Amino acid sequence: MNNHDFIHFVIARLFTMVIEFASFYMVVLLCEWFAAKRKYNIFKRACFITAVTFPMITIVIWTMIFSRHGLLY
């Protein structure tokens, strides 16, 4: 891998991370809006946001682990 390919890899990886972060942040904001609309207290809001985002984050982490070891091919 030469420098040109490495720079493209780094830019693509950073772009992917920014997109993932933005999508997770939008999901959290959507959950917060829904919880505020239902007038949940702070504990119910935290539980609701955790219940929605934890499976998504788990799937992303599992995908990264499995793809690193070549188990998704």
Rank of each mutant, 00 (worst) to 15 (best):
S23V: 14
F66Y: 11
A51K: 03
R13Y: 01
D5R: 04
C31F: 14
A36Q: 12
I65C: 03
M64E: 07
I19K: 08
A46W: 02
F48P: 00
F43P: 00
K37C: 07
N41S: 04
K39T: 13
V28M: 05
N3A: 15
E32A: 15
T58S: 09
L30F: 14
H69D: 08
I57D: 00
N2C: 07
M17Q: 12
V28C: 02
V60A: 13
N3G: 09
V18F: 07
D5A: 07
T58R: 07
S67A: 09
V27R: 05
L71I: 14
T63Y: 05
F48L: 10
K37S: 13
Y73F: 12
L30C: 12
Y40A: 01
R13P: 00
A22L: 07
K44L: 10
F66M: 06
Y25Q: 12
H4F: 02
E32S: 14
T63K: 06
C47I: 04
V10L: 13
L72F: 08
H8A: 13
V27W: 10
H8L: 13
L72D: 03
D5G: 13
T16K: 11
T50Q: 01
S67L: 04
N41C: 02
V52G: 04
P55W: 06
W33D: 08
V27I: 15
M17K: 08
T53K: 06
I19C: 03
V10Q: 06
S23H: 10
A36N: 15
I11Y: 02
R45A: 04
N2S: 12
P55H: 09
I61Y: 06
T50N: 03
I42N: 06
F24L: 13
T50S: 11
F6V: 15
H4W: 01
